[in-house]
Computed example of a mutant assay.
Amino acid sequence: MRLERLIVGMLETNGYILYDENMLEALIIDPGDEAKTFVEYISRNRLKPIGIILTHYHYDHIGAVLDLRKKYSMPVYIHKKDEEGLKDPCINHSVSSFRKSISIIPDQTLKDGDTIKTSWVTLEIIHTPGHTPGGICIKVKNKNIIFTGDTIFNIDLGRTDLEGGDYHAMKNSIRNKVSKWSDDMMIYPGHGDLASMADVKKKNMEYLDIIKRR
């Protein structure tokens, strides 16, 4: 499995492309903007996109979805609790000054514990509400890789003061899910650089504040 990070849009969102070098099938995670950037990478590597997986519904993570789905005729996945936010252009922005009308009807909704399987990779869905009600992290089975969207970053956590945010839910997600990840697990967040959980447990003050207040 190969992994590519594409940084796109005004908010510098991390979009990810996972693909198999032999079959050239590809899965896209959080194509937040600049569909052309994704298309160029896909074309250059002769990939065959087979699905888009969204960690949550905020606009900076979904801006290129419609163009990519139209071009490649592939399904869009999102957690059931973020389905309405994805459909509603009035609420799927994450910053009030960054609004853009977009409405997407997902092809399939997800829940905690679901898997998305291909012949070359299995992705495990971890429901981590807090930033949004249906926020998810996506674990690559048998690898120390988790895509964390806007749940957790290398040095802080996703905001809970935006549409759909819930600080109590975020605390539970951190305590009951994220804190269980091993030190060698690598997080690939929705913004900023990747990090090991060992580094997160040393440097992420918002994470540590929640953990220490048990």
Score class of each variant (00 low, 15 high):
residue 1 M to I: 10
residue 3 L to E: 05
residue 4 E to N: 06
residue 6 L to K: 01
residue 6 L to W: 01
residue 6 L to N: 01
residue 8 V to G: 02
residue 9 G to A: 11
residue 16 Y to Q: 02
residue 19 Y to E: 00
residue 22 N to M: 10
residue 22 N to T: 13
residue 23 M to V: 14
residue 25 E to L: 01
residue 29 I to H: 00
residue 30 D to Q: 08
residue 31 P to R: 01
residue 33 D to R: 03
residue 35 A to D: 10
residue 35 A to T: 01
residue 35 A to C: 03
residue 35 A to Y: 05
residue 36 K to I: 13
residue 38 F to C: 01
residue 38 F to R: 00
residue 41 Y to C: 01
residue 43 S to D: 15
residue 43 S to K: 14
residue 47 L to H: 01
residue 47 L to M: 07
residue 51 G to T: 08
residue 54 L to H: 05
residue 55 T to E: 09
residue 56 H to I: 03
residue 56 H to G: 11
residue 57 Y to S: 12
residue 58 H to F: 04
residue 59 Y to C: 02
residue 64 A to W: 00
residue 72 Y to I: 09
residue 73 S to L: 12
residue 75 P to K: 09
residue 76 V to K: 03
residue 78 I to Q: 10
residue 79 H to Y: 05
residue 80 K to Q: 13
residue 81 K to N: 14
residue 82 D to Y: 07
residue 83 E to D: 10
residue 88 D to A: 09
residue 89 P to F: 09
residue 97 S to T: 14
residue 97 S to E: 14
residue 98 F to S: 11
residue 99 R to C: 11
residue 99 R to E: 14
residue 99 R to T: 12
residue 101 S to Q: 05
residue 104 I to F: 08
residue 105 I to F: 10
residue 110 L to R: 06
residue 111 K to T: 14
residue 112 D to E: 13
residue 113 G to Y: 05
residue 113 G to K: 06
residue 114 D to F: 10
residue 115 T to P: 01
residue 115 T to M: 13
residue 116 I to N: 05
residue 119 S to Q: 13
residue 123 L to A: 09
residue 123 L to C: 10
residue 127 H to Y: 09
residue 130 G to Y: 03
residue 132 T to R: 04
residue 132 T to N: 07
residue 132 T to H: 06
residue 134 G to H: 02
residue 138 I to R: 06
residue 141 K to P: 04
residue 142 N to C: 04
residue 145 I to P: 03
residue 146 I to R: 07
residue 147 F to K: 07
residue 148 T to K: 12
residue 149 G to A: 14
residue 150 D to S: 11
residue 150 D to L: 11
residue 150 D to F: 10
residue 153 F to K: 02
residue 154 N to T: 07
residue 154 N to E: 15
residue 157 L to P: 05
residue 161 D to W: 04
residue 161 D to E: 09
residue 162 L to F: 08
residue 165 G to H: 08
residue 167 Y to V: 15
residue 170 M to E: 08
residue 173 S to L: 10
residue 174 I to W: 02
residue 175 R to M: 14
residue 175 R to T: 11
residue 176 N to S: 14
residue 187 I to P: 02
residue 188 Y to G: 00
residue 188 Y to D: 03
residue 192 G to W: 05
residue 197 M to W: 04
residue 198 A to N: 11
residue 208 L to D: 09
residue 210 I to D: 08
